[in-house]
């Protein structure tokens, strides 16, 4: 018996916890249209983890990637929360490349 799985579970909880400020700040600064960038970063991080031979580091990096992917699916709802006044609303967001195109896509939401 070794506690690798349990410790990874606890680490995952802590890493996912860092996803909340990521979503809140990401939406406030860039708006929900940054979701493809966040998803792309997440998938790239998970892809990079495949080349890490140390199991601990490999899992931690991959879970950080999963947090970005999960965060990308939360951005749309976070934008609505901010518009409803449940979170600070920033009307002066940083314009990201291809925002007009991304706005026409259906943002993912789980």
């Amino acid at each position: 018996m070794n506690i690798f799985g349990i410790l990874i579970g606890i680490l995952t909880l802590l890493i996912i916890g860092f996803g909340f400020p990521l979503v809140i700040r990401g939406e406030r600064i860039f708006g929900y249209v940054c979701w493809p960038y966040m998803m792309g970063i997440g998938i790239s991080i998970i892809g990079a983890s495949l080349f890490i031979q140390n199991n601990w580091l490999c899992v931690i990096i991959a879970v950080i990637g999963a947090t970005f992917v999960w965060g990308s699916t939360e951005l749309k709802e976070q934008a609505v929360r901010a518009e409803l006044g449940w979170f600070p609303f920033n009307a002066d967001k940083v314009k990201i490349p291809f925002a007009e195109i991304i706005e026409k896509w259906k943002a993912p939401h789980l």
Binding site: L50, C58, V59, I61, V69
Partner: peptide
């Protein structure tokens, strides 16, 4: 020749 380590992928998919 290096081996692909899929343990992180397992963790990422499970977490998601």
């Amino acid at each position: 020749i290096m081996e692909i380590n899929t343990i992180g992928l397992t963790a990422a998919i499970t977490a998601f």
